[in-house]
Design a protein around this nucleic acid. Sequence first.
DNA 1: GCGCTTACGCAACAGCGTTGCCAAAGTGGT
DNA 2: ACCACTTTGGCAACGCTGTTGCGTAAGCGC
Lengths: 363, 363
Amino acid sequence: MGSVSNLGANLAALRDHNAAVVLGLLRDAGEGGASRAELAARSGLTPQAVSKITARLRADGFAAEAGRRLSTGGKPATALRLVPGAGRAVGVHVERDAVTAAVVDLAGAVVATRAVALSSGATAETLVGVVAEEVRALVEGGGVLGVGVAAPGPLDHVGGVLRDVTGFPHWSGFPLRDALAERLGLPVVLDKDTNAAALGLLRSAPREPGSFAYLHLGTGLGAGLVLGGEVHRGARTGAGEFGHQVLRLDGPPCPCGRRGCLEVLCLRAVADGDTALAARLLGVGAANLVQLLDIDRVLLGGRTALADPDPYVRGVRAELPASVPVAVAPGGERVVVEGAAELVLAPLFGAGRAGRVLAPAAP
Amino acid sequence: MGSVSNLGANLAALRDHNAAVVLGLLRDAGEGGASRAELAARSGLTPQAVSKITARLRADGFAAEAGRRLSTGGKPATALRLVPGAGRAVGVHVERDAVTAAVVDLAGAVVATRAVALSSGATAETLVGVVAEEVRALVEGGGVLGVGVAAPGPLDHVGGVLRDVTGFPHWSGFPLRDALAERLGLPVVLDKDTNAAALGLLRSAPREPGSFAYLHLGTGLGAGLVLGGEVHRGARTGAGEFGHQVLRLDGPPCPCGRRGCLEVLCLRAVADGDTALAARLLGVGAANLVQLLDIDRVLLGGRTALADPDPYVRGVRAELPASVPVAVAPGGERVVVEGAAELVLAPLFGAGRAGRVLAPAAP
DNA sequence: GCGCTTACGCAACAGCGTTGCCAAAGTGGT
DNA sequence: ACCACTTTGGCAACGCTGTTGCGTAAGCGC
């Protein structure tokens, strides 16, 4: 079977799982909160189980009562809500020329932001220093659960190692996650910028169907894929190489070694100012992807697409079935930083762990 | 978060999960079986928990002791193995011109097979009758857990409904699963033929990495995708439309409404006898897919590919990174029937349910 | 024969969600 | 005002889970 779900589960895992499920429902419920009975209905747990679980969450400070609802014919429900301040996470967006960081509370609201430019020839050590400095400035309040770092791909999410980032060959192989974790004394998660964006978008629209593609058109062309409510990374975090699909056999050569890649064609059209062609190409690639994976909707982002979004939305929409909505990713560039923070928060809420819902027994 | 994993879990779910995990490990262990200590190490469960779980499995007839291992310095281990005869499943492969069925035991071994031709204008009711007849002839021994049906797409796996199967427009919308289930009095699962094949291949090589693509080149061109050890179907079982990716902008029109689809180009090359071109086209499509999803390996199947496999394997391999192995899917056409049976068996062994490892409490 | 290691079961246990029951607090009919 | 009813939610006892501590079986090496 799979390499992952061969794992047994114990009572502690059961408890943690249910706590995360309830916490996730509380977060999705937002400001209004949710009553114990609602939580029971949505989770499939018994009302009594929910009472016990929420009692633990309240004792730990993660949840609190928040007034009464109107009666629906019986005793009025007591609303419970997430206590946003019970924990924080830092998201860091590493770009080729800048580092942006933000602290986010449990509800996903941005508490503070920082940004700093990155000199063009920065070494990996310099990068660690800059990021550590930004994070330190943000975590002074304490209560920070961890740091999520979104960086340009390719990279290794599992190992936390950078690969051959275009323009920064000397970063290749650098264990950014562990270096940062040691320097900061905090847990660190590393992922591709497009994956972080997809995670952020997943968070901001939890009620939407389970799969979408975030297409990022900036200096390159990549994608973040959410399949079945989970970010799909692939074994080596290599998924999302959306730009390197061949759309024109024997087309112009691409640095990746093949010919007629979407990225080459599309970026050339952008350079030529032919936005309509670029949009059409993007649409054809999106249609390939949507057909292949049966994806529910498409979101566009990236500096180039955001600078003049309408023709891209129209062009992509024209190539897709009418059943697949196309829109600009809300939040602009901000989704990457927030998604990076979400890399830390998601496990608390029972997301991002479908394959390992139940961890093995502690050693 | 996802639409699926908002579900809480109770002790019954915990027990079932662990039982399935252990049963899956026993099946993967094959003839030789596995000791309780090995099961404990692989599952992460306590040895004592494994003892209890295997005691239940033995009491239910699913597992049995199978001799002693050699000592490794202490008390020799007692091997446990799956009892293959404890349950059976029927797999049915519906093609446009034939129906094949097979009974399979818990270990996946084929116990009996049947095949019958299907007249070209068969109605959906005729199909139900033919399939029911084949299944009835096979289940006489009893102990059958369910029936898995693999049919040409598109179809709806969740609803168990056929869609517009090429050449059989009158099948569209027919609820094959429920019709069969009622007629047979057995649980029925319906899935696309390519997905069944992928599931069968996943079963036959459980130790391999977690993702692969099964590319099926026959009268059409489709794919079965296994991502992270799970078959990826998409929300509407529409995933795997591998043949309708555009490889040549403004190429020849395709019945799907677009132009330059891989399927059109590839089938035309096949019709022209230009196997090398067909193979190269298949390879380019495969490379697009491998890059997009970070897939570990590629398996080829389908009548056309199997008739003359070498050029296809070579052609596809030439377009892929060297790190991605390409091979002919072992078992030929047989994988579809066996995979269909696996649709029934997989849930017993803890596979195919990563998103719903823990079911909600019983109503 | 002795010490050591490994495999595994028995018994007591802590902790999980469940069940049965009851109190609280509204609505709506009379 | 009163009563019947509905809905919310807690308390206590319970059944069942995997865990822990310890004892026993059964091999190896010296």
